[in-house]
Computed example of a mutant assay.
Amino acid sequence: MECSDDLQRMDIDMIHRFLSEESSWAKGIPLETLKRGMEHSLCFGGWSDGRQIAFARVISDQASFAYLLDVFVLPEFQGHGYSKQLLEFVLRHPALQGLRRFVLVSSNARGLYQQFGFQALGKPETYMEIHRPALYQP
Rank of each mutant, 00 (worst) to 15 (best):
L96K: 03
P138D: 12
V103Y: 10
D5M: 09
L91Q: 11
V103S: 14
M1Y: 07
P30Q: 09
G79V: 04
V90P: 00
G98C: 05
T33L: 08
S20F: 08
I29S: 07
G117D: 07
F102M: 05
D61N: 13
R17A: 11
L31F: 15
E125N: 11
L87P: 00
Q114H: 10
N108T: 01
K35V: 15
D13M: 11
Q78M: 12
H93M: 07
L135Q: 14
E22W: 00
S83E: 08
L99I: 06
L19K: 03
N108V: 00
R9V: 11
K84M: 08
S107A: 13
S64G: 11
D13E: 15
Y127W: 12
H80I: 02
L74Y: 08
T33S: 09
S23M: 05
E88L: 05
R92A: 15
L86P: 01
A26Y: 04
L69W: 02
S24M: 11
Q62S: 08
S41N: 10
F77V: 01
G81M: 06
L112H: 03
G46T: 00
W25A: 02
L121C: 14
E32F: 09
A66C: 10
I29L: 09
E88M: 04
Y82M: 06
C43L: 01
H16D: 05
L68V: 14
R36C: 09
D6C: 14
P94A: 08
S64R: 09
M38C: 15
G117M: 07
Y136V: 01
I12V: 15
V71D: 01
S106G: 02
E125V: 12
G98N: 14
F118A: 03
G46E: 02
I12S: 00
A56T: 00
F72L: 07
P94I: 06
K123I: 12
R36F: 11
L34C: 08
K123G: 04
W47N: 06
S107M: 05
A54Y: 04
R110V: 10
A120D: 14
K84G: 15
Y82R: 02
F72K: 00
D5Q: 08
D11C: 08
D6S: 12
E21N: 13
F55C: 06
L74M: 14
S23R: 01
Q78P: 06
D6F: 13
Q52A: 01
L121E: 10
R92H: 14
K84Q: 14
L68E: 06
